Amino acid sequence: MPDYDREGLVSAWAFDGAGGARRIDWDEIRRGPPDGNGFDWIHLQQLDHAHGRTWLSDDSGIDPSIVESLNAAETRPRCALFDNGAFLNLRGINLMPYSLPDEMHSIRFWVEPRRIVSVRKRSLSAVGDFEDAIARGRAPRTQGEFVADLSMRLVDRMDTVITALAEDADELEELVLSATLSNLSPKVSEVRRVAIILRRYIAPQREALNHFSLEDAEWLSPRDRNRLREAADRVTRFAEELDSVRDRAAVIHDQMVERRAEQMNRSMLILAAVTVIFAPLTLITGLMGMNVEGIPGSQDPNGFWGVTVLAALLGVGLVAFLRAIRWL
């Protein structure tokens, strides 16, 4: 069942600027934040055009180009600064139940001096935890603290998944020389695929956070800027870790190819040795088995056993020869 109303409202909060917050409804949203140091946060679900008129597009007072960016289908992390606010698009790994580890969903923010409007496409566990913290009385005091806190929560979720991915790569490196290749190949492909997908979205997030920290606004304190840069630095480390996982997966794949080639060479060597051993024996038995006159030993009752012993001795001799030249 959807957790938003027909206009896409997921939740809305009014912050008093002193660490307190309370939920608000549409009436208070339309009236706007009261005078003082506080601000409002309106969290919306992205809706399609079939829903018709919405507050965001018709009543929010936000520039149509920014509304279009907030409702864009698929965008990479970025930040754009304007005279009256800042647009920030971030991605977060979804740790909600039944979600895949490579699912990175976007959340877009329009930050003004007295209001923050965010738009999601799918729910994010980091946002849910952030709202739980607000309900427990741990509310941000400024818009800068709001963005910094939520950014750190998004980064923390990345840490969990990327650490698990690195551990999977460690395990694959240990198994590459012993496990069955048919069982190992899908795991290597999956690790490499997830690393590539995450890297594609995580890398631009650093630039977006650093760019937002340059916003020249009173509500962005030096402490908030430092936290945003810290989040950007962690994202950089994650991107480097994903590069490492991707490269390690490529090395593991190369080792698997070499191991498969070695197995094929070994099999071909055995087949060649069997051919070398049995080709002379087949020639001898073929000659001795011809149904013509003059075959040596054809009238001797012990002829069969003589040929058998001769073939056995020749086979043993060929095996010894192949061992001597290290074919076997």
Rank of each mutant, 00 (worst) to 15 (best):
Y4M: 03
D5R: 09
G8A: 11
G8D: 10
F15P: 00
F15G: 02
R23M: 03
E28G: 03
G36C: 05
G36S: 06
N37V: 14
W41R: 07
I42L: 08
L44S: 06
Q46I: 05
D48K: 05
H51S: 11
G52P: 00
R53N: 02
W55K: 03
S60L: 10
I62E: 02
N71P: 01
A72T: 07
A72S: 09
A73K: 11
A73I: 10
E74G: 02
R78I: 06
A80K: 00
F82I: 04
F87S: 05
G92L: 04
M96N: 14
P97M: 14
P101R: 14
P101K: 15
D102F: 04
E103I: 10
M104D: 01
I107Y: 03
R108G: 01
R108W: 01
V111E: 04
I116M: 13
R120C: 10
K121N: 10
K121R: 14
D129T: 04
F130V: 08
E131K: 09
A133W: 01
R141Y: 10
R141D: 13
T142E: 09
Q143M: 11
G144F: 15
F146G: 02
V147H: 10
M152W: 00
D156M: 06
D156S: 08
R157H: 15
A166F: 06
E167H: 13
E167C: 06
D170H: 12
T180F: 04
L181P: 04
S182E: 14
N183T: 12
S185L: 15
P186K: 08
V188K: 03
V191D: 07
I197R: 06
L198A: 05
L198H: 04
R199C: 05
I202T: 11
P204L: 13
Q205N: 09
N210R: 13
N210V: 10
E215K: 07
D216N: 12
E218A: 13
S221Q: 12
D224S: 14
N226E: 14
E230P: 01
A231C: 05
A232C: 03
R234V: 06
L242S: 08
L242V: 07
V245P: 01
V245N: 06
R248I: 11
R260W: 05
A261V: 03
N265Y: 08
R266Y: 06
I270C: 02
A272H: 02
T275D: 03
F278E: 08
P280A: 15
I284D: 05
T285C: 09
L287V: 15
M288H: 09
V292L: 01
G294V: 10
S298L: 14
N302G: 05
N302D: 10
W305L: 11
T308F: 08
L310N: 00
A312I: 05
L314I: 15
L314K: 03
W327Y: 07
W327G: 04
